[in-house]
Simulated assay, not measured.
Amino acid sequence: MQIVKEALAGTLESSDLLVKVAPAADGRLELVIESEVMRQFGAQIRRVVAETLERLGVTAGLVVVEDKGALDCAIRARVQTAVLRGAGQVQIDWSRLS
Rank of each mutant, 00 (worst) to 15 (best):
R78C: 08
R78A: 13
L62M: 12
V64R: 11
V32L: 12
T52N: 04
G61R: 04
S35V: 07
A70R: 02
S35D: 10
V21Y: 00
G57Q: 12
V63W: 00
L29A: 08
R46D: 14
L53F: 06
R76V: 10
K68A: 06
G57H: 09
A77E: 10
V64T: 15
A43R: 15
V49N: 01
V21P: 01
V65C: 05
A24N: 03
E34N: 12
I45C: 04
G69H: 07
R55H: 10
V32I: 10
A70S: 10
Q44H: 11
A24V: 03
A24R: 05
G42V: 08
Q40K: 13
L31K: 11
Q80M: 12
T52V: 07
R55Q: 15
A25C: 05
K68V: 02
V65L: 02
A77V: 09
R76A: 09
G57N: 08
Q80W: 05
G61N: 01
V48W: 01
A77M: 09
R55Y: 00
A50I: 00
L29V: 04
V58P: 00
A70T: 02
A25S: 15
Q40C: 01
A77I: 04
A50E: 15
D72T: 05
R47F: 10
G42H: 09
Q40E: 14
I45V: 15
F41Y: 13
R55E: 13
D67E: 10
V79L: 05
A22S: 14
R39Q: 13
